[in-house]
Design a protein around this nucleic acid. Structure first.
Lengths: 208, 208
DNA sequence: TAGATTGTTAATCGATTAACAATC
DNA sequence: TAGATTGTTAATCGATTAACAATC
C-alpha cells in the first residue's frame, strides 16, 4: 500500500475535481497550476504538491490536461466505480439525501430506503422502495450495499450503526449528531450540520 | 480585537460544546482535560491549548466545571443570542434545514422561507410561511435577518447570494455546489455534501 | 531552440504535543 | 499540606510555501 495521504490533502481533492469539471464543461483543454491556483485562491505550489502525492499528472512547459487530470482525480476518489447506497431514516434529511441530484452522475446509486414509520411502507423515492427496518437484514444480505447513510435521531444512530456494521457494511455516512465509534476497517464520515452552523455563528459574532 | 484564532481550533469548538452538553445531561459536574481527552480521542494538551485561546476556564488541581465551560463555549460560538434565519430554496434539502430540530435549542430561529414555485406559496413549515422570491427584498428590509441559508441549484446560488448581500445579509450558509465569493465583511460557510461523500468514497477505496 | 511549467527539494511557517512550574 | 491539574513555555512534528533544476 502507498504511504497514507494527509487528511488536509484528501479534503481538497473533491474541490479540485469540481473545478476541473467546470473547466471541462467550459471546453478548457489545459491549465497550469498557476492559473488554477488563481481561480481557486490557493497557491500553485500547493496544487502541485497535492497532486504529486498521487503521481505526476502534468507536463513541464505545458501544464495539466484538464480532461485527463479530472479523470485521474476521479479515480483517486473512487468515482470510477459504482457505489450502492442505502439510506436509513426517511425524514426530511433522509429524503433530501435520497433525492440529491448530483450523486447519480458521480456513480452513487440509491438502492434502498429504510424507516420505522409504517405509513411510508411501499412508497417509493425515484423508483426505489422504502422498506421497514425489519427488512434491512435480508436486504443487505441479498444485495450489494457499499455505503449506508444514517439520517436518523442521534439516540438510535449508534445501535443502527452497530447493526449495519455487523451485517458487513464498511462505510457509514453519518448525519446524526453523534460521533460514531467505528471498528478497524469501517469508515465513518460525519456531516454535522449544527457544527457547521455554529462555526458560521462564531465567525458572524467576530464581525463587529 | 483579539488575535485571530486558527480555523482548526474553531472547527473543534462545536465538538467540545457537544460533549460538554452530553456530560451536563449526565449530571457530571467537573471534568479534567485528561478524562475529556480520553472520551473525545484527542490529547489533553490540545484541549488545554484550544481553550486557552479564549481564556482560562479551568482551575489547577480541579479541572473544568462542566456547566460553566459549556456556557462559556456557547458564548464563544455566539449561542448566547438569537439568530434569525431565512431559507432560500424549499426543495428537499431546504425543507430538511427548515425542519432541523437541533437548531431551535441553540438559538437559531427560522423566520422565513422563499422559493420560486408558486404551488408552495402560502404554505407553512413549522408555522413559518413560504414566500415567493419577489417578496424577499421587502421581507429582509422589514425584518431582522441574520443568516441566509441557500439550498438551491448551483447556477442560481451565485446571483441569489449577491442579491441578499446587497440587501445587507452578512452570513450565508451555502449548500449549493459552488464556492461563493463573498466580499469583505460577509461570511460564507459551505456545506458541500458531495465533497463529503467523495471523501468517504476515497477512504473506502483505500480499504482493500 | 527558448520559454514555460512541472516535479521535487529546501525553507518557512503553523499546529500539535510534551513538559513543567504555578497554584488550587 | 500533598496531590492533582491547569496554564503556558518549549520541543516536535507536519503542512505550506518558496525556489529551482529538470524537461517538455
Amino acid at each position: 500500500m502507498e504511504k497514507p495521504i494527509s487528511p488536509a490533502v484528501i479534503r481538497r481533492m473533491p474541490r479540485y475535481y469540481r473545478y476541473l469539471g467546470e473547466l471541462m464543461n467550459q471546453g478548457v483543454e489545459r491549465i497550469s497550476s498557476k492559473s488554477l491556483s488563481e481561480k481557486m485562491h490557493v497557491t500553485a505550489s500547493q496544487i502541485r504538491q497535492d497532486l504529486n502525492n498521487f503521481g505526476g499528472f502534468g507536463q513541464q512547459g505545458y501544464g495539466y490536461n484538464v480532461k485527463y487530470l479530472h479523470e485521474e482525480i476521479g479515480k483517486i476518489l473512487g468515482l470510477d466505480r459504482e457505489h450502492a447506497i442505502i439510506v436509513i431514516g426517511v425524514g426530511n434529511l433522509g429524503q433530501a439525501v435520497a433525492n440529491y441530484r448530483n450523486f447519480k452522475g458521480l456513480g452513487f446509486n440509491m438502492v434502498g430506503f429504510f424507516d420505522i414509520n409504517p405509513n411510508l411502507k411501499g412508497k417509493k423515492i425515484g423508483g426505489v422502495p422504502i422498506m421497514m427496518m425489519n427488512e434491512l437484514e435480508d436486504f443487505i444480505k441479498s444485495n450489494k450495499v457499499d455505503i449506508c447513510a444514517l439520517t436518523l435521531p442521534k439516540d438510535v444512530a449508534g445501535p443502527t450503526a452497530e447493526k449495519v456494521i455487523s451485517l458487513g457494511i464498511k462505510a457509514i455516512w453519518n448525519f446524526a449528531l453523534v460521533d460514531l465509534e467505528a471498528p478497524e476497517g469501517v469508515i465513518v464520515e460525519n456531516v454535522h450540520l449544527s457544527d457547521s452552523l455554529m462555526q458560521l455563528s462564531y465567525k458572524v459574532s467576530k464581525l463587529d
